[in-house]
């Protein structure tokens, strides 16, 4: 039964005909699995007639094949036509593994497909691997409030399905000149019906999110009060960085919720994560430990965050942060 299934799929996402960068994170994940399994990597993308130039992006970043289901009804995400088209493609091509992003659409369509096709599905994975002897997909996700990691397998049902936490890995870089095949598919009308009608859409104001920043200055309860937030804000401005926060700082109203990092906030993986006045609770670590370099500033030499940092500074953030801003400004003036 299993041997009939072959190939690794990622479900790419687009908005207004442009590929979303979360697709490139999935390609990075999928490429590793495809190489280990020695299977081709296919990026499946639904939309309304995306141009080849856009689809080529998926190939440049690691897909061997692009499978584009194209119809006006697929321009924006809608669970019924998306799932009907994907179910049809899965039945026809029989992939072995299918990954989607744990976004509002991925977390809707994947369980809908799993429900229809009797498939196993693991939500919000932060780590994926192939088990050496069995070739099975190992799906690891935080469980029990982040205190525990659980690794999950799907022994028999195919494809093995998982949603992957956005920003839990880096997007694949483009390799110009990489070759791949593009298959365009126009689904029959019977697959495109929906009982749900979109009435309107209000776009949220665009703000530079903490998930896009190369540097995150993260603040915890150690900052003590709202007025002190000018310290990290100034530093963030100097570095074109974003300000992140622990839940303690968010719950006290010092930093808005969209900037919360951790299990019940966002996952970030910037080049540098500077945590000041944060103890390093597991729930906080769940949202930042994939950062490239972690620097921690804490007065408590026993703070758990130190064990997860490349640079552990036992010191007072009220001394270090202003001094850091001062030195950066001074070095700028010199050059």
């Amino acid at each position: 039964m299993n041997s009939a299934h072959h190939g690794i799929w990622i479900l790419a996402e687009q908005s207004q005909g442009r590929i979303d960068s979360v697709s490139y994170e999935l390609l990075a994940r999928g490429r590793v699995l495809a190489d280990k399994r020695k299977h081709p990597l296919t990026a499946v993308i639904l939309g309304a007639n995306l141009p080849d130039s856009e689809l080529q992006q998926l190939i440049a970043r690691g897909a061997d094949r692009v499978l584009h289901a194209s119809a006006a009804e697929l321009a924006i995400f809608s669970p019924e036509p998306y799932s009907a088209c994907l179910c049809a493609l899965i039945k026809e091509e029989k992939p072995e593994i299918m990954l989607a992003a744990a976004t509002s659409s991925g977390r809707t369509v994947m369980p809908y497909i799993a429900g229809k096709l009797r498939l196993g599905l693991t939500a919000d994975c932060t780590d994926l691997d192939i088990e050496a002897d069995s070739g099975l997909l190992l799906q690891t996700r935080p469980a029990a409030g982040g205190n525990i990691m659980a690794t999950i397998k799907t022994p028999t049902e195919r494809p093995q399905m998982a949603t992957v936490r956005p920003h839990s890995s880096r997007p694949a870089e483009p390799k110009p000149g990489r070759q791949g095949e593009i298959r365009r598919w126009e689904p029959p009308a019977a697959l495109l019906g929906s009982r749900v009608r979109r009435v309107s859409f209000e776009k949220a104001p665009d703000e530079r999110g903490i998930q896009d920043a190369e540097v995150v200055i993260a603040i915890g309860r150690g900052i003590k009060k709202a007025e002190n937030m000018s310290l990290p804000r100034k530093l963030a401005e100097l570095l074109d960085a974003a300000v992140g926060a622990s839940r303690e700082a968010v719950d006290r109203g010092w930093v808005p919720y969209p900037s919360q990092v951790g299990l019940s906030g966002k996952t970030v993986s910037p080049k540098v994560y500077l945590a000041a006045g944060i103890s390093g609770a597991v729930q906080h670590l769940a949202g930042m430990q994939t950062s490239d370099t972690i620097i921690a500033i804490n007065t408590d030499p026993e703070a758990p965050i130190f064990q997860y940092s490349e640079l552990a500074i036992c010191g007072d953030l009220f001394t270090i942060l202003p001094l850091l801003a001062e030195k950066i400004e001074a070095s700028r003036k010199q050059s």
Binding site: A150, T151, I152, F306, Y308, S309, A312, C314, G315
Partner: peptide
């Protein structure tokens, strides 16, 4: 369809450089 095969405590300990 899914099986939990192992559970473990997250461990991302690093060799930190420590400064006082």
């Amino acid at each position: 369809p899914t099986r939990v095969v192992s559970i473990f405590r997250p461990n991302h300990l690093k060799q930190s450089e420590r400064l006082s």
